[in-house]
Simulated assay, not measured.
Amino acid sequence: MLSIGEFSKICEVSTKTLRYYEEIGLIHPDEINPDNGYRYYSIKQLEKMLFINRLKSYYFSLEEIKVILELEKDQSEEKLHTALNRKRREINEKLNAFECTLKQMSTDILNLEKGIPIMSYLNRIDVQLVETKPMNILFMRQMMSSDDYASGYGTYFSRLYEKIASEKLTLLGTPMTIYHSPEYNPVGNDTEFAIPIEETIKGTRALSEGFCARSVVEGSYSELTSVFVKLREWVEKEGYEMVNSPYEIYITNPNQANMDTDMITEVYFPVKKKI
């Protein structure tokens, strides 16, 4: 048997952390002295602690690790394989995001060295006033957290395309996302996924015509926030006001684009002239 101190030293986990793991049911001492409360761990628990540390190094949360540890032996390998694949995808997504951040940072550093203001790129965003035609859209509306967007977009658009194919509906345009929440909430935002079609059936609605401030993004979706800012500034400067929820139309399919620079997205702010 190993004292909590010995176990802590071998596994490089503090005794405070071990006590917390015991508290949340992650790993319990094999024996607790009833007289003095001293905790002892068995040799076989060293491997379990190494396994916990390995999963932590893969950025699994303690809650996720606990679920994995509680799996029955006959299904643990399969479930672990699935969990590792999912976590690998998550890490790859974060790596890609870091790569984009580093690329943007390098550009900003280079511009500053040339005496170019860091926010000057906003001046290159073009805004136009356009008049849109009415559209009949097949839609799904969901509350989406900030973590849901990347995977959620593909899921809901796929369901809409499946309905279009199964019911032999007539496609009239590319996918679009309409943002209905009055403010941003990382826990959940009212988001509508839609595709224009010809037929009026259950699950469709009319998107009214009108004037919109429009801008086109050629490149990564990370630029969309800047475009939203520029559009909102334009609306105020030109004496307009928002009348409906803003929306995006995806001219190119991101899954078919060879790289971010190939993606084209139109952003619309429905407006009317202030009285």
Rank of each mutant, 00 (worst) to 15 (best):
I4R: 07
F7S: 05
V13M: 10
Y20C: 04
G25E: 09
N33Q: 02
P34G: 06
N36I: 05
N36M: 07
R39G: 01
K44Q: 12
Q45Y: 01
L50K: 12
L50M: 12
F51R: 08
I52N: 11
R54V: 05
L62A: 05
I65S: 09
V67D: 13
E70D: 15
D74K: 09
H81L: 14
T82G: 07
N85R: 08
R86T: 07
N92T: 11
C100V: 08
K103C: 06
L110Y: 04
K114V: 04
Y121H: 12
N123D: 14
I125D: 05
L129K: 04
P134M: 03
M135W: 00
M140W: 00
M140K: 06
Y149D: 04
G152E: 12
L160D: 03
L160V: 02
E162W: 02
P175W: 15
H180Q: 03
V187R: 03
E192Y: 01
K202F: 03
F211W: 07
V216F: 00
V217Q: 13
T225P: 02
V227I: 10
E233L: 13
V235Q: 04
E238N: 08
Y240H: 02
P246M: 02
P254D: 11
A257T: 15
E266V: 04
F269G: 02
P270M: 03
K272V: 09
K273I: 08
I275E: 10
